[in-house]
């Protein structure tokens, strides 16, 4: 699974730490998700998309092979 959290953050102009605080995780966790090394739980994914005010599929998408 990949995501475009980094792009969305740039649009909204918030840092990883801001996003981390908003969804209640650590900054390292956001970074690990952004670099596609960790697939967040559904709860966390929904929280993140709510911060950006977008639908889940606009931020997280399946990759070839998932």
């Amino acid at each position: 699974m990949k995501n475009n959290i980094r792009v969305e953050r740039a649009i909204k102009n918030i840092t990883q730490a801001d996003l981390a605080d908003a969804v209640g995780v650590s900054r390292q966790t956001i970074n690990t998700i952004e670099s596609n090394k960790y697939v967040p739980s559904t709860v966390l994914a929904l929280k993140i998309s709510r911060v950006f005010g977008k639908a889940l599929e606009e931020i997280f998408m399946l990759e070839e092979g998932d």
């Binding site: 209640g24 650590s26 739980s41 966390l44």
Partner: peptide, 11 residues
Amino acid sequence: RTKKEDELTAK
């Protein structure tokens, strides 16, 4: 707990 315990640190 870690300083900021979340689902990833738990994992």
